[in-house]
Computed example of a mutant assay.
Amino acid sequence: MMNFQGGAPIATPSTPLAQGWCVLSLLHDRIQAHIERELQARHDLSVREFSLLNVLSRQSERGDHLHMKQVAEAVVLSQSATTRLVTRLEERGLLSRALCDKDRRGIYTDVTPSGLELLESARPTNQAALQEALDEARRDEHLRPLVEALEAFGFPGYDFAQSE
């Protein structure tokens, strides 16, 4: 199987498992890049910023808070990268931080009303960009089976903000 990324051939991995991983990674990268462009252009948000606002808003809806370590796990970043991301959004007035009542060393991060407003306006953009990227990927014979698998599986009831 010949793999292509951006029209240029890339090295073919040696095992079927590695080939599958490369195709999955390619699909992820294409989708993320498409969503990133749309969120940046329309809302001045990166995919990571959108994800962080989304995770924290869902926790807030439940009346819950996440420690910074849990936030890092939820957005799949190191704790230092998460701290920088939170700081950027806090400087924009989209997040706030507070000390944990039970553990003064712990810090909670919450979405501000401005952050919720921006998130709500960005959600349709995120959804439309995701659908556009999946539609485009469906036209690629190597990516089509993954798109179909995602749609068939559907992730009903999966809580992407869950913590361990």
Rank of each mutant, 00 (worst) to 15 (best):
E73H: 13
A133S: 02
Q59H: 15
A18D: 14
N3L: 15
G106M: 01
R123T: 09
S163P: 01
F155T: 01
T15N: 01
M68E: 10
H28P: 09
L27M: 05
T83F: 12
L24P: 02
G93T: 06
S57K: 07
Y108N: 10
H142Y: 11
R105Q: 11
R62T: 05
V147N: 03
A33V: 07
C100H: 14
N54H: 14
E132D: 12
Q5M: 11
T125G: 05
S114C: 02
S121R: 15
Y108P: 03
G7I: 07
V76S: 12
A152G: 05
S78C: 08
L17D: 14
K102D: 14
L85C: 03
V111D: 06
N3I: 14
S57L: 03
T87C: 13
P124R: 04
D103R: 13
F50S: 05
L66I: 03
D135M: 00
D140K: 04
S60H: 14
M1Y: 10
R62A: 14
G154F: 00
G115A: 03
Y158W: 08
R62F: 07
E49K: 01
T109V: 14
L146W: 10
H67G: 11
V147S: 07
D110V: 10
Q127R: 12
S96F: 11
G20Y: 03
Y108L: 08
S121K: 15
L27K: 06
S46Q: 01
R62L: 14
G6Y: 08
M2P: 15
E73K: 13
A8I: 10
S163D: 08
V75F: 05
E90L: 01
T87Q: 15
L24S: 15
L52W: 04
G106I: 06
